[in-house]
């Protein structure tokens, strides 16, 4: 069922093709780029583009992980708490003042392993509540956000009597100062998630569970296990984000990444991942992240005040969501 439009069939098909294409958001990125470049000479400089790229890595990692969860029809609001807890745990393992392994050559690998394990465990807890106790994802992850965030603060205060933990080993800090290293890790992780979704059994199962968990169960898909693994993977992605942020700021803190949550969901949804499950791709999310980052950076270079940037970003995300509804309803849906 479609609306009657006065344009001819041919023109409409061209528009429809463009709008329904999975590269639509990439096209929007180009529009943003073209809109900003004439006004801000710095915008298109290679230095600035590299800057945009390195600055969006934490968002890229988080949004990629979140995409896995969104595809199963869930949502994970607790990623910021996972980041904070991982950051504190990692810093407590290797920190120079009070770290359990301070000075030891094993400090950095053990700390990184501990951070990934922390993220995955938070995901396991969330996933277990959602898949096996059948609690709503929104509620579970909202409350675990409070719980794990509080836990991270307590852990930090108990050990170093402050929220922030400093003096991390220089090898670890290289992840922050050598931007190409962080970029390499993030790109590899995103590529891994892409291959997982597109090429493996677990990937197909994630989509199936998102489409219809009952049908999946009856068709022999281990629905519980698939759901839990989505949350655990997302937790691991949050931990990777924690590694980047901790290294870049040379501080372990429960407050890292707190402002990222809305951008994460926003980037995934702008990319085209459905909040109802069953639909989404890592590539789409990458486009969404790129779009948000370009927009934010461009507005920044125009020297707008901070609140103005926030207003415009909010408006643009809303418009993008509207476009998404529109293209689903009138182009793909009919």
């Amino acid at each position: 069922m479609t609306t009657v439009s006065p344009t001819t069939n041919n023109e409409r098909q061209t528009t429809n093709k463009l709008v329904a294409s999975e590269y639509f958001v990439l096209f929007l990125c180009l529009v943003v780029f073209a809109a900003f470049a004439p006004f801000t000479p710095d915008f298109a400089s290679s230095g600035n583009l590299w800057n945009i790229f390195t600055a969006c890595l934490p968002l890229l990692l988080l949004a990629t992980g979140q995409t896995l969860v969104l595809i199963t029809g869930g949502i994970d609001l607790s990623v910021t708490a996972s980041i904070g807890l991982s950051s504190v745990v990692g810093a407590l393992v290797m920190g120079g003042d009070a770290g359990w392994l301070r000075g030891s050559p094993a400090a950095m690998p053990v700390a990184i392993a501990a951070m990934l394990a922390t993220g995955a465990l938070v995901g396991l807890f969330n996933g277990a509540c959602i898949a096996w106790l059948r609690m709503p994802a929104f509620m579970v992850t909202l409350t675990t956000t409070m719980f794990f965030n509080g836990f991270a603060v307590w852990l930090a205060k108990r050990n170093v009597d402050a929220e922030s933990i400093y003096n991390l080993p220089p090898a670890f800090l290289a992840l922050g100062t050598q931007a190409w290293l962080a970029a390499f890790l993030a790109v590899v992780a995103a590529l891994g998630a892409h291959l997982l979704l597109a090429r493996t059994l677990l990937g197909r199962w994630l989509y199936a569970v998102g489409h219809n968990p009952r049908t999946s169960l009856i068709s022999g898909v281990p629905v519980g296990g698939v759901t839990v693994s989505a949350y655990m993977l997302n937790g691991a992605f949050a931990a990777m984000t924690a590694i980047l942020l901790t290294a870049r700021l040379e501080t372990g803190s429960p407050n890292h990444g707190k402002a990222l949550l809305l951008d994460v969901i926003g980037a995934a949804v702008i990319g085209g991942t459905s909040l109802f499950g069953g639909k989404g791709k890592v590539m789409w999310t990458v486009f969404g992240v790129l779009f948000l980052s370009l927009l934010g950076n461009g507005l920044n270079l125009l020297n707008l005040s901070d609140f103005m940037i926030t207003i415009i970003k909010g408006a643009v995300i809303l418009i993008a969501a509207l476009l998404d509804v529109w293209r689903n309803k009138f182009v793909r849906g009919s």
């Binding site: 197909r204 489409h211 219809n212 049908t215």
Partner: peptide, 21 residues
């Protein structure tokens, strides 16, 4: 609708679902 198919998924994905393993 509720237990046999993933309505939004493709024909191929539905047919292959059980035997993916």
């Amino acid at each position: 609708r509720q237990e046999g198919l993933c309505m939004e998924a493709s024909i191929a994905d539905n047919i292959a679902l059980v035997t993916l393993t």
